[in-house]
Simulated assay, not measured.
Amino acid sequence: MASSSASSGAGAGEPGPGASDLLRTVPRGIAQVDLQTNLWTGLVFIVALFVGGWQFGVFGLLGTVVATLTALALGVSWRDNVSLGLEGFCGTLIGVSLVLYLNVRWMTVVLVIFGAIAGSVLTAALNVLLKPYRLPTLTAPFCVITTVMVVGGPSFARVWDRHAGTAPPSAADPGTALGWGELWQGTFSGVGQVFFQNQWYVGVIFLIGLCVAGWRTGLVALVSSLVGLLTGWVLGAQAADLGAGLYGYNSVLTGIALCGTFVSVTRLSALYALVGVVAAAGLTAGIGNLFAVVGGHTLTWPFVLVTWVFLAAVPMYARIARA
């Protein structure tokens, strides 16, 4: 997601990618969930997904491959978009989220395939609509596709049969008293929750992948997760939810986006990013409550909305510049 503009008529006259090129694109697509193009970061992320559960690795790869091939087949620019993984990351999240919500079965496979295809089309549409404003699509296509599927799912018996429960951890363990264990585990889990992983050790693997891309990126992710968690604690969020990283992951993505990826780093812009990180954590509860009637699927909506607003405002600020 380092860039997300597709040129008109993209793909025309470009040499076709070879098998090795396509293989390298898949991990880059997974790395782009966290706004990275680094091949090795993507490979570490794949390991993290499989550590979290084989189903997350398999369905994440399925979504990435389908979305990437869809964009390539429809003629999206290989050089400017596909090769950088920009057409795969929403497919990754669609695959991981749907297997989490709907469990492992053939209907989930079908939905991931069609969801990834639809996500690829929506990515292209948003690129066209947002290009005049220099706004990236971010994970908005994933948010739209997954929200539609989980909201509509209960109407279809073959979709919703044996679906997984999605109640937050606080439903079984209420209380706002934050212990040391929830603090440090929640900080690492916030990094992993970007991929719907709530085990702290999986979050550590994802953090290692981000550090492979650059130590500053890893530091921003870790600090952003902690700030998101502390924001939720100050406001009185449930400790079990904080310990699961539910208030950190949108802050992680927002921090990475606003501190170096889309905004040039200065002392002032770092404070600007910090405000965005806090806002994303605060909006997490708002989006969750808004969607409570359909299961409270917050997804990465807070990251998308906050980052769009903060990037759209940059041209008005003489002391803050786009990267």
Score class of each variant (00 low, 15 high):
residue 3 S to W: 13
residue 6 A to D: 07
residue 7 S to F: 11
residue 8 S to A: 13
residue 9 G to M: 06
residue 11 G to L: 02
residue 11 G to R: 07
residue 14 E to N: 09
residue 15 P to F: 00
residue 21 D to P: 04
residue 21 D to T: 04
residue 22 L to V: 10
residue 27 P to S: 09
residue 31 A to C: 11
residue 31 A to E: 11
residue 32 Q to P: 00
residue 42 G to W: 02
residue 52 G to T: 03
residue 52 G to W: 00
residue 53 G to P: 04
residue 56 F to D: 02
residue 57 G to D: 12
residue 59 F to S: 05
residue 60 G to I: 03
residue 73 A to R: 15
residue 74 L to Y: 06
residue 74 L to Q: 11
residue 77 S to Y: 04
residue 78 W to G: 13
residue 83 S to H: 08
residue 83 S to Q: 14
residue 86 L to A: 06
residue 91 G to A: 06
residue 102 L to H: 04
residue 103 N to L: 02
residue 105 R to E: 09
residue 109 V to S: 03
residue 115 G to T: 09
residue 118 A to L: 14
residue 121 V to N: 01
residue 128 V to D: 09
residue 131 K to I: 02
residue 136 P to R: 12
residue 146 T to C: 05
residue 159 V to A: 00
residue 159 V to L: 01
residue 166 T to K: 06
residue 166 T to M: 15
residue 166 T to V: 15
residue 173 D to L: 12
residue 175 G to M: 04
residue 179 G to D: 15
residue 188 F to N: 10
residue 191 V to H: 12
residue 193 Q to S: 12
residue 195 F to A: 14
residue 198 N to L: 05
residue 205 I to T: 15
residue 206 F to E: 05
residue 207 L to N: 10
residue 208 I to T: 13
residue 208 I to P: 03
residue 210 L to I: 05
residue 211 C to H: 12
residue 213 A to K: 06
residue 218 G to I: 01
residue 219 L to K: 03
residue 224 S to M: 07
residue 229 L to P: 04
residue 230 L to N: 03
residue 230 L to M: 13
residue 231 T to H: 06
residue 231 T to Y: 08
residue 235 L to H: 01
residue 238 Q to W: 00
residue 238 Q to Y: 00
residue 239 A to R: 07
residue 240 A to F: 00
residue 245 G to N: 05
residue 246 L to F: 04
residue 248 G to T: 04
residue 249 Y to S: 06
residue 257 A to S: 08
residue 266 T to W: 13
residue 268 L to F: 05
residue 270 A to Y: 07
residue 272 Y to S: 10
residue 274 L to H: 03
residue 280 A to G: 09
residue 281 A to T: 04
residue 281 A to W: 06
residue 282 G to P: 07
residue 285 A to C: 00
residue 289 N to I: 08
residue 295 G to F: 05
residue 299 L to P: 06
residue 310 F to S: 07
residue 319 R to P: 00
residue 323 A to I: 00
